[in-house]
Simulated scan of single mutants.
Amino acid sequence: MNHMPYLPILHADEHLIVVDKPAGLLVHRTSLDAHEDLNALDALRAQLGEDGPPHLAPAHRLDKGTSGLLVFTTRATAARELGQAFDQGQVQKRYVALVRGWPEEHIEHDQPLARDPELPSTGQVQLPARTTFQRLGRVEWPFQVGSGHTSSRYALVEARPETGRRHQIRRHLKQLSHPIVGDATHGKGPHNRAVAAWLGGVQRLWLHAAELHLPHPAGGQLHLVCPPGPAWQQLLEQDGWLEKPAL
């Protein structure tokens, strides 16, 4: 029997509850992953118990593999207002990711994306999408993936999506030939497996929602920060970093 995970609560008021979602947990039940029972919405409801808010709902999406800041609303009015804020680009988001290769120090990428990442892009409506990337640190590890090189290069990057397309950061990094490590859909399996083995069997999508600036339903701005967890610290403790970023 699966047990509901405990979600650290980072902020709570009469309009919002913000948690640190672990990697590998769905936000809510979905037909796209019909065999998965565990999800953050049910876990938080169980955690809050009978005295919890009756109108608890996620205000935005995080991929199952992504860890970090997840905002729930506790009132219908808050859900409507925050939903509009996310849709209209009024929420500033910052992520960190481990990617294959050494990207340029700063990248502004605005290649359109097909609406549905689960289907072939050909024939789909292409939607505007823009993400800025900042390289935070580079590392070279002494294992070989494929032929031609006896070591493998990776980088830690900061991603700031200015639009909210599904899998936007993951798809934009794939377009740039710097896919996120651990991305089974848009990444490279040999690199995913090699890094997992190098880190002692840690298998996850290396993408973390670290910071949000959003308009609070009661007025003013709310600034939320969620430092990456122990797995990221283990990542930085490995030898081979040319520039070791502070998380």
Rank of each mutant, 00 (worst) to 15 (best):
L7I: 08
H11P: 08
A12F: 00
I17H: 00
V18I: 01
D20L: 06
K21A: 02
A23N: 11
S31G: 08
L38S: 09
L38E: 08
D42S: 15
A46R: 14
D51N: 07
P53F: 02
P54K: 10
H55Q: 14
A59W: 02
L62I: 05
T66A: 10
S67V: 05
A78F: 01
A78N: 02
A79C: 10
R80D: 13
E81R: 13
Q88A: 05
G89Y: 02
Q92D: 06
Y95C: 06
V96W: 13
V99E: 04
W102L: 04
D110S: 11
D110A: 13
P112H: 04
L113K: 10
L113M: 09
S121N: 13
T122L: 15
P128F: 03
G137H: 13
R138W: 03
V139H: 11
V139I: 15
Q144Y: 03
V145N: 11
S151G: 04
Y154T: 06
L156K: 06
E158L: 10
E158Y: 01
A159M: 04
R160G: 01
H167C: 06
H172L: 08
L176S: 12
I180L: 11
H186M: 10
H186R: 10
K188L: 15
G189H: 14
G189E: 15
P190Q: 09
A196T: 11
W198M: 13
W198G: 08
W206M: 08
W206E: 07
L207V: 06
L207C: 07
H208F: 08
L222R: 11
L222I: 09
L222N: 08
L224D: 03
G229C: 01
L236W: 06
E237L: 04
D239W: 00
L242F: 01
L247D: 03
